[in-house]
């Protein structure tokens, strides 16, 4: 079952005459990991950043087509490209979280980092906050390492810990989807492994879209894979089909490293 459904989607940056994404059709399925792969500049980040409309922080972008998001209570799909009001944007971003390439700990304590999304969502009760922060840190596989220094600055954590903190922070608000843009490309192999395990663990609760340059990573953890090239979606299928039995020549060339 899809939680997000992208239909005939095109996207154009301001001041650029040709679209950076053309006619994309794909789905993000519930409780699955969907990987976006493709050479640099093909539009993976652009697509991902459309899915929570973080693009709209900067004016002048042009969207075409439809991106639907499943509304949990009514089980209806709603087009997020229709959103215009500030409060709707806020709700969208609380439902669709995002993790960036570089860890982005906020300049505050570890506890406050994780509690941040909860606080702005209006949760004030201290014991509830504490409970949910602990839960989120456990979900983020970070609790053991930080439980006795929750009030220390988050800047003091290692890169891998910071990234897991950001994941915990995103998980804390119980989003339906989390978008990951190359979340491990700035990390060492051990931290990378920890985060991969974490993602597989997390998909019980959320649906995941992840951009990655690491073919092994995509094949290891994802259920579906989309291969993009120059703003087009070339192929979208179950991960094993993409890697073992690609239908398109370009896909095959790319995953076998014969690209160029």
């Amino acid at each position: 079952m899809p939680v997000m459904n992208i239909k005939d989607f095109s996207f154009t940056y301001p001041g650029v005459d040709h679209p950076s994404l053309k006619n994309i059709n794909m789905k993000i399925r519930k409780n699955k990991i969907t990987a976006l792969i493709g050479p640099s500049g093909c539009g993976k980040s652009t697509l991902l950043r459309s899915m929570n409309r973080i693009h709209d922080l900067y004016p002048g972008n042009k969207y075409d087509g439809i991106i639907e998001l499943l509304k949990a209570d009514t089980q209806k799909m709603e087009n997020i490209l229709d959103i215009k009001k500030e409060n709707e944007f806020i709700q969208l971003r609380q439902r669709v979280g995002m993790i960036f390439q570089k860890p982005t700990p906020f300049p505050m304590s570890i506890f406050d980092n994780v509690a941040y999304g909860l606080k702005i969502a209006g949760i004030k009760d201290k014991s509830e906050l504490e409970g949910r922060v602990e839960k989120a840190l456990k979900d983020g596989a970070l609790w053991k390492e930080v439980q006795d220094r929750l009030n220390k600055s988050a800047m003091g954590l290692s890169g891998g810990q910071q990234q897991r903190l950001c994941i915990a922070r995103a998980v804390a608000v119980k989003p339906e989807v989390i978008l990951f843009d190359e979340p491990t490309s700035a990390l060492d192999p051990i931290s990378t492994g920890a985060i991969e395990e974490l993602l597989v663990e997390l998909k019980k609760d959320v649906s995941i879209a992840i951009v990655t340059h690491n073919m092994q990573q995509a094949s290891r953890i994802s259920d579906y894979t989309a291969f993009m090239y120059l703003g087009d979606l070339i192929e979208f299928d179950k991960t094993e089909n993409i890697f073992l039995n690609p239908k398109e020549k370009q896909t095959e060339d790319y995953i076998t490293g014969r690209f160029g």
Binding site: N52, I54, L57, E86, F89, I90, Q91, L92, R93, Q94, G97, M98, I99, F100, Q101, K102, T104, F106, Y116, G117, I120, A121, C166, R169, A170, V173
Partner: peptide, 14 residues
């Protein structure tokens, strides 16, 4: 850094 701001916006901050 822009990413830091973006990640706060991505959590629904005004």
């Amino acid at each position: 850094p822009d990413v830091l701001k973006e990640s706060a916006y991505a959590m629904g901050a005004t």
